[in-house]
Design a protein around this nucleic acid. Structure first.
Lengths: 152, 152
DNA sequence: GAAATCCCGACATTGATTCTCGACATTCAG
DNA sequence: CTGAATGTCGAGAATCAATGTCGGGATTTC
């Protein structure tokens, strides 16, 4: 299961991407993003901070500040966001490339049958999810004029 | 990440399957399974209970009791075990077929862009993991006489 | 200078994970 | 029949992760 935090991050990014697609896009305040995406404002602060540190959005401080995308949706990777918000994707710590950790009780990775079988599943899964971008989410929605009031 | 509990369950099943492959297989006590698989004994009790309730192993009570497989390894599904031990596999509650739950904040599932994109990933992932059985794990190990002391 | 905004660490609450423990039920050897 | 060896099972302890809230500081603009 992905966490609530990840859902909020995605909703916030969708909100920012929708705004960026407008004729006259503006930076959105946390207040506004929280309202449009249905996210608790004070929680959203922390989430947007992480997303910003990941280089996906930029923030402007001070009066008339706000947030805006600094990457094209097609360059925003869902799997990278997952790693940023929820941590490693791998089913076992010993299968993560960026957050590798030896399993404490493992005597020999090379012959571990659990590792071997999950490795195969994981590689196949990675291929699928690593190809996904925010743009795929934007395109997967119906056109705005067909939504007729749905929030997402 | 799969839980430690799931790893213990897999190790226990591998232990039982290895035993079942012997010329004169016997039911193994918790004590023995815990020793061979490196699992805390009192924790293993609860795990084996769940695995038994899932119909994968049988227990014999009383003196000279123990546990043994009651399915062929090729009929023991890894994904079913995952559901039994760790709960739903789906990335969102609204995508789980056996443990479906509506997302609290969702106004319309049909147009939810988060749901839609994760649904595609999930279906592909399911196809892979649902085909896996305990037998795949047994076969993925090197032959016993090549292991030379490795526990897994 | 005041107001609006983002920044950030501290902490509260709840639930999941990972066990341990004690007591009971069942079986079998003698 | 008794006792020892086993599985059964609910209660709960210890730790950690998830999901927020809060207070106050830093920055910018009017």
């Amino acid at each position: 299961m992905i966490t609530q935090k990840m859902k909020y991050a995605l909703k916030a990014l969708l909100t920012l991407a929708d705004e960026a697609a407008q004729p006259r896009p503006e930076a959105l305040t946390i207040e506004e993003i929280a309202r449009r995406s249905g996210t608790p404002k004070r929680f959203l602060e922390h989430i947007l901070l992480e997303v910003r540190n990941a280089g996906i959005i930029a923030s402007i401080r001070g009066r008339s500040g706000g947030y805006s995308l600094i990457k094209r949706p097609m360059d925003i990777s869902i799997s990278e966001l997952l790693r940023t918000i929820d941590g490693p994707i791998a089913p076992l710590p010993c299968l993560s490339r960026r957050a590798y950790q030896r399993c404490e009780d493992c005597t020999d990775e090379a012959t571990c049958r659990i590792r071997k079988v999950f490795a195969e599943v994981f590689w196949s899964y990675l291929v699928i999810i690593e190809s996904l971008t925010l743009d795929d989410m934007l395109r997967s929605g119906v056109a705005a004029d067909q939504v007729l009031g749905a929030a997402q």
